[in-house]
């Protein structure tokens, strides 16, 4: 399918990273290609559904997480990755982020966080450096407080970090969040500020130090990676034969 994001859209970077990570994991026999299922939200993030040659579910606004959770519960043998925007994950469907973080289904949630509802022409989301000067919503401390077992943030600028974090998130047994900061070239072209304000604090579990997350810097890295039983394990759901 021809790509219909705006020319130069950093979503292309995320698409490239996702494709290359999946290829690497398949080549290394860590996962099977036929077991990959990508679930998308709608809007610009949802378009990724058409650009990947894997099993996929084009969901509803804000509902990628529950659909992905259901898929994993229906067949725990699948590798389930949700790709959604900030509008869906941190607005319309925020409830699901909190619950799935707690319950720990083994799914990966990749959030393309550009601060706008782009496809409806640029209305601000909760992560937009807003017009009225309202504080920005930070999903990282929320995911940590909700006991997500893998919490991370990257930007679409740092290819290598993004790749390694996406890979770690997919391989993590349990719920993993990868929040990816990127500008929207059409409606929130804030790339320079993002680059300037990014601070890498990788490897630092800020569970005990929420103050950190309230700083104006965009902190990137893996903030938590811990092991605990997944929802499927607790419910003793088994893999479907194939």
């Amino acid at each position: 399918m021809p790509i219909t994001w705006c020319p130069g859209c950093p979503n292309n970077v995320i698409l490239y990273v996702l494709k290359s990570v999946l290829k690497e994991l398949v080549d290394a026999k860590k996962i099977r290609k036929q077991d990959i299922v990508v679930v998308t939200d709608i809007g610009c993030a949802g378009k990724i559904y058409d650009y990947l040659e894997v099993n996929a579910f084009y969901g509803l606004h804000g509902r990628a997480i529950p659909i992905a959770t259901g898929i994993k519960m229906g067949n725990p043998g699948l590798t389930v990755i949700a790709v959604a925007g900030d509008g869906g994950t941190y607005g319309e469907g925020l409830n699901h982020l909190v619950s799935s973080s707690r319950l720990n289904p083994d799914i990966t949630v990749i959030v393309i966080n550009n601060g706008v509802l782009a496809l409806t022409k640029g209305q601000p989301t909760s992560t937009h450096p807003s017009i009225g000067g309202e504080p920005i919503f930070d999903p990282v401390p929320l995911a940590l407080a909700s006991q997500a077992s893998f919490v991370s943030r990257e930007t679409a600028f740092d290819l290598r970090d993004l790749q390694s974090t996406v890979k770690a998130a997919i391989m993590h047994k349990g719920f993993s969040l990868v929040d990816i900061f990127e500008p929207c070239l059409s409606y929130n072209n804030d790339g320079e500020r993002m680059k300037r304000d990014t601070e890498r604090v990788c490897g630092k579990d800020i569970q005990s130090d929420f103050e950190e997350s309230l700083r104006p810097k965009i902190r990137t890295g893996v903030f938590r990676k811990m092991s605990r039983p997944t929802l499927e394990q607790k419910l003793r759901l088994s893999k479907k034969k194939s």
């Binding site: 529950p66 259901g70 898929i71 229906g74 699901h96 479907k240």
Partner: peptide, 18 residues
Amino acid sequence: EDEIAAVNQTLGAVFSGA
């Protein structure tokens, strides 16, 4: 967490073969 999650999880599970 709510009925919205319930219905979407149902559809996900059926899609994956349950």
